[in-house]
């Protein structure tokens, strides 16, 4: 309906569309009762448990009674060391990760561990402690670099029995810088050099890359802006021998299952 509002003045009172009565339509009446066989629509009841899950975890279904023989450990954000990092950092806390790995070793229901990495690095000592604990695990371990496994993430990635990298994932290999990184005690060049040697030694012992090549990547000039080092993407990491294979989650799980089977046939997991 069209009318000129200026002409009619306070038209709302009389001409409002809501006020016009709708005459009953002749003919077919709407069916109120559902026909037999047609689905009956019930009002959905809110499920408090589901709502809670969405609120807390951002997902709907959490398998409640699902028992997996694989434990998945995620290394994300900064690997936190002895110093508590400011709260804007997303951190992986070694004091919780290490007993978890021990629990994995000891728990008879867990047969293997998958390590998922998306880390930017962090504390050298804490990172090496995690890497050494993963290496010392007698149960099969497979690591997969998703997104990034930079700096101290590199030794953690190679510490597993078999390592994967997603095709788009990257690893940054760079020296432990000489300025601004040591908090507390003035460090000598010699101390940092030894710290770096520990990282180099761990990586070369646990992967197929030679020490010479790893140091070459570490001190390469022209790859990173304003820094030395190399960004290694997906298949390049495999080419250098740092990582075993390019793959995704399904390949990693398949490999882990295969390693578990091999371990079982060799005398079992205790």
């Amino acid at each position: 309906m069209y009318y000129n509002s200026e002409f009619f003045g306070d038209k709302e009172k009389f001409f409002s569309v809501d006020n016009i009565p709708i005459p009953p339509q002749p003919g077919k009446q709407p069916t109120i009762h559902p026909q037999p066989g047609s689905p009956v629509r019930r009002k959905a009841k809110p499920n408090p448990k589901k709502v809670e899950t969405i609120k807390e975890l951002g997902e709907v279904n959490v398998p409640a009674n699902f028992q997996s023989n694989i434990h998945c450990m995620t290394i994300v954000g900064q690997v936190e060391g002895h110093m508590v990092l400011p709260p804007q950092n997303k951190t992986t806390k070694y004091e919780h990760i290490i007993p978890q790995i021990v629990a994995v070793e000891q728990n008879p229901n867990i047969e293997g561990m998958l390590v998922v990495l998306n880390t930017v690095g962090g504390d050298v000592e804490a990172g090496l402690a995690i890497a050494e604990t993963i290496r010392g695990l007698s149960k099969p371990t497979v690591s997969i670099v998703m997104g990034g496994g930079h700096s101290i993430g590199t030794p953690i990635a190679v510490s597993a029995d078999y390592s994967f990298i997603a095709p788009t994932a990257t690893m940054t290999i760079h020296p432990i810088r000489l300025t601004g990184l040591v908090i507390g005690v003035p460090a000598t060049m010699d101390y940092l050099e030894r710290m770096q040697d520990r990282v180099v030694q761990f990586v070369t012992e646990n992967s197929n890359i030679s020490e010479e090549n790893f140091r070459k990547l570490m001190f390469k000039i022209g790859e990173l802006s304003q820094d030395i080092g190399t960004v290694v993407v997906g298949k390049d990491a495999v080419k250098y021998g740092l990582i075993n294979e390019v793959g995704g989650m399904s390949q990693a799980l398949q490999k882990l299952k295969q390693l578990i089977e091999e371990k079982k046939s060799q005398g079992g997991i205790h």
Binding site: P86, V120, G122, D123, V124, I176
Partner: peptide, 14 residues
């Protein structure tokens, strides 16, 4: 003693 080995800028971490 902490040595932070990261690609993330240190002034942002701290």
């Amino acid at each position: 003693m902490d040595v932070i080995y990261t690609t993330y800028p240190l002034d942002l971490v701290l």
